[in-house]
Nucleic acid binder design. Structure first.
Lengths: 283, 283
DNA sequence: TATTATTACGTTAGGCGTAAAGATT
DNA sequence: AATCTTTACGCCTAACGTAATAATA
């Protein structure tokens, strides 16, 4: 019977041209590879080599055998990956969200409810999330609007309200509320990895430029050492210490005050329980 | 790395349900198969089994692994067949003919010209022959009319003229020639394996019935012990002793007097030389 | 008690590398 | 002389089977 380890040597011979070179590359001795070629020949049952006294090369059939060997090795490698990804899928819960805030409470809940599983999450566009939950690419999705499918459960879990943090010296500092239109044109600090908020700000404030900070440290430094407006929400924690010289002013646009919807396949009762905990944290 | 022999054991376990049964079927000991399952698990790098104290079964991932193993084993088997058929193709010359007579002289010529190769032949319909020569399924074809392709060489090699062998007591016994129409309605003896002739007779003599003999012995017995007409041609040998009480009368229909055309890929010069020998046997 | 998986252990076959030979450039 | 394949040979691993263990139905 064919042996993948031996086929690897055959392919190496085809790639390197001589048995010696192939043996060297594979860190095995020349006699070993000689023997292996014979084994392969008997495994295939037909001659694969044209042998001279001190040279050996592939004949036509041999070249065909090398092709087959290559595809067989590729198939084997792929098989391992398939099985490994199958295992991973069975032992991880993947949640895709359109914004980070819902994940802050969702992920700890999942971790304690399913301690044997790996919890992983990803920020995605809403269409992607619906597609992935429907096709079992991920188990849980967080959207901004109810899911339009009847094979999915959909539960409103929390609201997030955007505010702008404006320097006390600013002209708008004492307003009770603002709109995107009011602050359109102001250049603002922004974190990266905030999901749909990035896109929303760019849409609603087309005249503004955004200084997107990937590093958390850089963002914090800029908040403390500049007068550039930044944003916070009712769900954000750890901002209060940063904004002692700023006023927090709610943004009243409806798009800035969102409800998050938890979606998952209706069959996944375990996750629906989690969603209900999120919706009513007193439970 | 994966090992096909081990995967075979995995599949056997999946098929037979228990390690003991699988071991028995494979004629190996239980400890061996236990070890093999562990090897496979480490080769895939993920758990494949749910183990109880004295039971073991495939988990979800394991079932997936079995699927992969099956297709890998099938691929390996197929690879061997591919290579073997490649070898066969390189060491046999296949000639497809619409009638047996041209093969009687062609095959011996091929055998002596290519003693290292296996010569094999087949009777086929003309369309099949053209397709097969064009697609390298066979090397040589024998047709009744020139090949309509310009990548093929086409050489007229011989003619065959059909005659009917009629009992001396028959009403037509003294005719110098006959047509299919004349003998239409007579029930005739026919050999099998005579290529296009069978179909031609049925077309031209729709009112006749044909007693097709697969066995050579049966055909000869019937020729000698019946008055049923049979056929011969200028290329047939070994008929003369059989038909001492019959007259041989040529059939004049154009379809009964055919020219055979030798075809092969233009690139196959070796075979063209053979065709020329057939066309002019004095060479 | 019969069946099944696993562990322990001793034996052996086979696979590998070293060394040497044969052949070619 | 250098390079390459093949053969010969000895070592040693690792694979197998037997026997024993543990657990279950």
């Amino acid at each position: 019977m064919l042996n993948l380890l031996e086929l690897e040597q055959l392919v190496a011979f085809a790639d390197w041209g001589t048995l010696s070179k192939a043996a060297e590359e594979l860190h095995i001795s020349q006699p070993t590879i000689t023997r292996t070629m014979k084994n392969i020949e008997t495994a295939f049952g037909v001659p694969l080599f044209a042998r001279g006294k001190n040279k050996i090369e592939l004949n036509e059939t041999g070249k065909r055998a090398v092709e087959q060997a290559r595809s067989l090795l590729a198939a084997a490698e792929n098989a391992v990956l398939q099985v490994q990804s199958c295992h991973a899928r069975l032992h991880t819960i993947l949640a895709e969200s359109c914004a980070p805030a819902p994940l802050w409470s969702l992920l700890p809940l999942l971790s304690s409810a399913f301690p044997e599983k790996t919890i992983s999450s990803k920020l995605c566009r809403q269409e992607t999330i619906i597609k992935d939950v429907s096709s079992d690419v991920c188990e849980i999705g967080i959207l901004l609007s109810p899911a339009p499918s009847d094979e999915l459960s959909c539960i409103p879990i929390m609201q997030e309200n955007l505010s702008v943090c404006i320097s006390r010296t600013d002209e708008f500092a004492n307003r009770k509320s603002l709109t995107f239109a009011d602050i359109n044109g102001f250049n603002c600090l922004l974190r990266s990895q905030i999901g749909f908020w990035t896109e929303l700000c760019r849409q609603k404030m087309p005249a503004s430029k955004f200084l997107v900070q990937t590093e958390d440290f850089a963002f914090q430094e800029l908040v403390q050492n500049s007068n550039l407006p930044c944003f916070t929400t009712n769900l954000a924690s750890g901002m209060s210490s940063l904004i002692q010289n700023r006023n927090v002013i709610p943004i009243t646009d409806p798009e800035a005050n969102v409800t998050y919807y938890f979606i998952c396949k209706k069959s996944r009762k375990q996750y629906i329980a989690i969603a209900n905990q999120l919706a009513d944290p007193t439970n």
